[in-house]
C-alpha cells in the first residue's frame, strides 16, 4: 500500500485537518446543547409528571359508586351529568364513547325531571332531533329558538349555572331514545372514558405560568425555536472567526 494513502483519512472522531478538528469541537458542544435542550427537557417532563385529575374527575369519583348502585341523590346525579358534559365538551371522544356519555346525560336529565318536565324534555328533544335533520343552516331562527329552549330546560334540570359553558351544549347532547335507561354496556365504558379524558400528565413545569403560557408549552413552542436560531447564528459567527484567525480561505 502506498504509505501516502494513510495521510488522507478523515473522521469526525479523529479529524486530521485543523479545520475539521475545530469544526468537530464546535459541533460537539453545540449538538450537546441542542440534544439536551430538546430531548433532555422532554425526559425531565416525563420523569416528574404525575397523573393529575381534573376537578370534574374528583367529583365523578365521589358519586360513581352511587350512580352504579342507583342510590345517588339528585345532587350526585347532577354532578355525574356535569362530568359527562365536561368530557363531551372537549370534543375528543370516539363515537362509542360519545354514545355512552350521551346516554348518561340523557338518562340523568330524564330521571331528575319532574313529571311535567319529563314530557317537555322528551317532546322538545325529539322536535330538536327532527329539526336538525331538516335545517340547512344553524342560523335558522326556529332551530335557534328550540335549541335555546331545550338548553334552558336541560340546564335547569341538571342544575347548571347560567355562565357555565356546558349550558350551551346540553341541547346538543340529549338523545330522546337514550333517556329511559342507562345501558349496562355504557356503564362499563364510563370509568375508562373518565380516566382517559380527565386525568392529565402534569408537574410544576406544566402548572407554572410564563408569559401567559404553561411553562413547558412556552419552552417547547417558543424557546426551543429561539435556541435553534441562536445556535445556528453562534456556529456561523464562531466558524467565521476561526477561519479568519487561521487565515483559511474557502
Amino acid at each position: 500500500m502506498d504509505p501516502n494513502q494513510n495521510d488522507y483519512h478523515i473522521s469526525f472522531f479523529k479529524p486530521t485537518t485543523v479545520q475539521a478538528k475545530l469544526n468537530r469541537n464546535l459541533a460537539i458542544k453545540l449538538i450537546l446543547v441542542w440534544a439536551v435542550a430538546i430531548f433532555g427537557f422532554q425526559y425531565l417532563l416525563k420523569v416528574i409528571e404525575k397523573p393529575t385529575p381534573e376537578v370534574a374527575y374528583t367529583n365523578y369519583e365521589k358519586v360513581w359508586e352511587n350512580i352504579l348502585s342507583e342510590n345517588a341523590s339528585t345532587e350526585q346525579m347532577q354532578i355525574f351529568a356535569h362530568t359527562s358534559l365536561s368530557v363531551l365538551g372537549k370534543g375528543f371522544c370516539k363515537p362509542n364513547e360519545k354514545e355512552a356519555l350521551n346516554n348518561a346525560v340523557s338518562w340523568v336529565s330524564y330521571q331528575l325531571a319532574d313529571s311535567s318536565q319529563k314530557e317537555q324534555l322528551l317532546i322538545k328533544t325529539k322536535e330538536f332531533e327532527n329539526l336538525k335533520t331538516e335545517i340547512t343552516s344553524i342560523s335558522d331562527p326556529q332551530y335557534i329558538e328550540l335549541k335555546n329552549s331545550l338548553s334552558e330546560l336541560g340546564s335547569n334540570i341538571l342544575g347548571l349555572q347560567s355562565n357555565d359553558p356546558r349550558t350551551k351544549i346540553v341541547s346538543l347532547e340529549l338523545v330522546s331514545s337514550e333517556m329511559e335507561l342507562f345501558k349496562a354496556e355504557n356503564k362499563e365504558l364510563i370509568p375508562a372514558i373518565m380516566s382517559t379524558y380527565l386525568i392529565h400528565n402534569q408537574s410544576f413545569l406544566t402548572d407554572f405560568k410564563f408569559l401567559g403560557f404553561p411553562f413547558h408549552y412556552f419552552y417547547t413552542a417558543v424557546f426551543l425555536l429561539v435556541l435553534f436560531v441562536f445556535l445556528c447564528w453562534l456556529y456561523c459567527v464562531r466558524i467565521d472567526k476561526m477561519y479568519l484567525r487561521l487565515d483559511i480561505e474557502e
Partner: peptide
C-alpha cells in the same frame, strides 16, 4: 362567526404532554 360564546370547558389535554386523551 356562528354565534357561539368564546367559552370552553377546561381542556388540559390540549396542552399537557402526551395526554392519554390524544
Amino acid at each position: 362567526a356562528l354565534g357561539h360564546e368564546f367559552a370552553i370547558v377546561p381542556s388540559p389535554e390540549f396542552a399537557m404532554p402526551w395526554d392519554p386523551a390524544t
